[in-house]
C-alpha cells in the first residue's frame, strides 16, 4: 500500500462511515482488509484500493467499510448507564409519560445487540412498574453483518460471561450447543435497522432515550458536532442521551447538557436533578428528584 493509496482509503472511510484513521493505523488496515483482498480474489491491498478508486463495486465498498468498524460490545457494558436507565431515566419518563404510556428507545450503534438486549432485560425486570406501557427498542448499526448476529441473539460462552449476571443468563437465555440464545420474548422486544449515522435519521421519528455509545469516538470533532445536533432533534427536551464512558458533548455542542452527577447522561435541558416529578397519574409517588439526591 503506497502513501497515496492509504490517503485515498482514509478519505474513502471518512466520507462513507465517518471513521478517522490516523497515519499510524496502517497495520490495522492491513489486518482488517487482507482477508477481503483474498476472498475477493483481488489478492493485494493495492488491488482492493484500485478497485475502490475505479468505483462501482458496491459489494466491495460495503465489505471494506464494515471490516473497518470496531464492533466490540458487552452486556451491561460499564454498568452505570444501565443504573442511570433504571434509577433516573425510567422513573422520570414513567412519571412524565404517564398518560401516553409509551417509551421509545434507540440504540444508535447497536453492534451485535448486547446493548439493546441489556435494556430489554432492564425493562423486563421492571415489568411490575410498567403494566400497560408500550415500549419499543430500536437497534441500528452501519454494519449489516453485526445486525444479522444481533437479530439471531446467539452469543458465545465467552460473550455471555462478560457483564451478564448468571441469574440473567438462566432467566433470559437458552443453551444452543456451544452458544447461548436470548429467548424469543426478548428478541421480539427489539427491532433492527441498518442505519449510517452520517445519513439523515429524521424518518425514525422521536425517541425518549437514545443510547449512542462508543461510536462518536471514531469520528472527528465536526462529525461529532453534526451528529449530536441531529440527535437533539430526535429527542424531546426531557429526553435522554447516553454516551460512552470516553465521550461527552462538552466542547462539541450546546444542544445537550450533562445531567449533574450522572456520568455519560445528557439532556437538552437537564431536569432530572432540578425538578421533582410533576403531579401525575402515579399519585406523585415517583419522586424523580429523590432518586437523584446523591
Amino acid at each position: 500500500m503506497t502513501p497515496s493509496e492509504f490517503d485515498f482509503l482514509k478519505n474513502f472511510l471518512k466520507t462513507r462511515s465517518g471513521l478517522v484513521l490516523s497515519n499510524d493505523k496502517q497495520y490495522l488496515v492491513e489486518s482488517r482488509l487482507l482477508p477481503i483482498a483474498r476472498s475477493s480474489k483481488l489478492e493485494t491491498l493495492s488491488a482492493v484500493i484500485q478497485a475502490l478508486q475505479k468505483g462501482g463495486n458496491r459489494t466491495l465498498e460495503t465489505e471494506v467499510i464494515e471490516a473497518m468498524t470496531t464492533n466490540e460490545s458487552f452486556f451491561f457494558r460499564d454498568k452505570t448507564p444501565f443504573d442511570h436507565f433504571k434509577d433516573t431515566m425510567l422513573p422520570a419518563l414513567l412519571a412524565s409519560r404517564s398518560t401516553r404510556k409509551q417509551l421509545k428507545i434507540w440504540c444508535a450503534a447497536a453492534s451485535t445487540g448486547q446493548e439493546p438486549y441489556s435494556l430489554g432485560i432492564c425493562l423486563k425486570e421492571d415489568a411490575a412498574k410498567m403494566g400497560g406501557w408500550r415500549t419499543r427498542i430500536l437497534g441500528t448499526d452501519l454494519s449489516q453483518e453485526v445486525l444479522e448476529k444481533a437479530k439471531t441473539g446467539l452469543y458465545s460462552q465467552f460473550e455471555v460471561q462478560r457483564g451478564l449476571p448468571i441469574q440473567m443468563l438462566l432467566k433470559y437465555f437458552e443453551q444452543k450447543g456451544d452458544m447461548w440464545q436470548i429467548n424469543a420474548g426478548m428478541r421480539a422486544m427489539v427491532e433492527w435497522k441498518k442505519l449510517n449515522l452520517l445519513d439523515s435519521f429524521s424518518h425514525l421519528g422521536e425517541f425518549d432515550i437514545v443510547f449512542c455509545r462508543n461510536v462518536l469516538i471514531y469520528f472527528d470533532q465536526a462529525t461529532k458536532t453534526e451528529i449530536l445536533g441531529r440527535l437533539a432533534k430526535a429527542l424531546p427536551e426531557d429526553g435522554f442521551l447516553v454516551l460512552g464512558a470516553a465521550e461527552t458533548v462538552v466542547g462539541l455542542t450546546d444542544a445537550f447538557k450533562p445531567v449533574p452527577g450522572k456520568r455519560g447522561l445528557f439532556q437538552r435541558k437537564p431536569q432530572a436533578d432540578t425538578k421533582t416529578a410533576p403531579a401525575s397519574a402515579l399519585g406523585g409517588r415517583v419522586a424523580v428528584g429523590a432518586s437523584s439526591i446523591r
Binding site: F74, K79, F158, Q161, R162, G163, P165
Partner: peptide
C-alpha cells in the same frame, strides 16, 4: 475462563 471473565464476575 480468562482474566476478563474473572474480573467481570467478581465485579458483579
Amino acid at each position: 475462563f480468562d482474566r476478563e471473565i474473572v474480573e467481570a464476575k467478581f465485579q458483579e
